[in-house]
Computed example of a mutant assay.
Amino acid sequence: MGAPTPRCIIVRHGQTEWSKSGQYTGSTDIPLTPFGERQMVRTGESIFSNNRFIDPNHITYIFTSPRTRARQTIDLVLRPLTDEQRSKIKVVVDEDIREWEYGDYEGLLTPEIVELRKSRGLDQERSWNIWRDGCENGETTQEFGLRLSRAIARIQNLHRKHMEEGIPSDIMVFAHGHALRYFAALWFKLGVEKKCEADWELKDVESYHDESVPYVKLDKYRHLIDNPNFLLDAGGIGVLSYSHHCIDEPALALAGAFIPPPEEESQHAKV
């Protein structure tokens, strides 16, 4: 084998005042706390300098939410890299990977959301589940799933191209708690598949501006109907990849950021 199997490395931004308190933070653009800044500096030193879990020369793209807390996190994590290494990484700001639009629940705690919904006569037969029920005056799970499905399609398309060219390709995604857990679930093809039929599903959305990233038109997408039961704390990192060196077999890399030599990858047979 030549180049290692491509990976998608997801990074949740560092601590903010609202991630610390548990308040739902979607469109509110707040910065990292001083602890969150130190947290992400340590993360960058660990994965690039001390343990070298990620080879910076293998990073082809970084996709980021437009929010300040995500973009701050990139700068802090990449601090150990040289100017030359950073200059070779394309950073794409993508609205499709912004956090869930929480609508009426922005800034609230979960118990407060539950009480608000109860006061409006909702959830009389079953408890609120954001993964299924979405947010009042915010996004439905279908809307959230569609835009994350678009982002995944673009990243997997780039990975396919890089694999065909024999280029090592780690693509990093810097975003948020709900967005990245949802993203990971869709990567594994969890949830349900939905055909694009409504106007809002068929619409071409300009969520980013980079001619090197081809737009992938979807005729179907996936969305969740229940909690995927994934955890990703502020500052956390997860690694998504593919089984058998095949883009059509997305998988979780249980070894995390650790990099085995290509010849040691478990890609030799379907078991």
Rank of each mutant, 00 (worst) to 15 (best):
E106S: 00
S207Y: 12
E112A: 06
Q142P: 00
D133K: 03
V114G: 03
V173Y: 01
N50F: 07
G177I: 04
F53E: 09
T43R: 15
R67D: 08
R222I: 08
D133L: 03
T16K: 04
Y105W: 12
A184T: 02
Q267R: 14
I89C: 10
S149V: 01
M163D: 01
I237Q: 02
F188G: 00
A153H: 07
A151S: 15
R147A: 10
A175Y: 05
R71K: 13
I259K: 08
M40W: 05
P250V: 04
R71V: 09
R160D: 11
F63I: 04
C135T: 09
K161S: 15
I113Y: 01
G238R: 03
M172I: 10
S127Q: 12
A184R: 08
A198N: 07
Y242R: 01
I130A: 11
D96F: 12
D29W: 05
F63G: 00
N137L: 05
R71D: 03
I62N: 00
G138F: 08
P4L: 11
T82A: 09
A185V: 02
L146R: 02
V93I: 11
L78C: 05
P80T: 04
H245S: 15
N129W: 04
W128Q: 09
S207A: 15
P260H: 02
W131P: 02
K217M: 11
Y105E: 05
Y221F: 15
F188L: 15
P111E: 06
M172G: 03
T141A: 13
E265L: 14
A184P: 03
L218H: 11
Y102D: 08
K270F: 07
G235D: 07
G166I: 01
S87R: 10
V41D: 11
R42D: 07
E125W: 09
K88E: 09
C196A: 14
G236Y: 05
I167Q: 10
R160F: 07
I237Y: 04
D233R: 06
G256N: 02
A3E: 02
A234L: 05
S266W: 09
G191N: 01
K189Y: 06
C196T: 13
P56S: 09
Q124D: 04
S149T: 11
S169P: 08
R86E: 04
G138S: 06
P262G: 11
K118E: 15
H159M: 13
A253E: 13
P56A: 14
H245L: 13
I247L: 13
M172Q: 07
E206F: 10
H245P: 06
V271C: 09
V271P: 04
G36E: 01
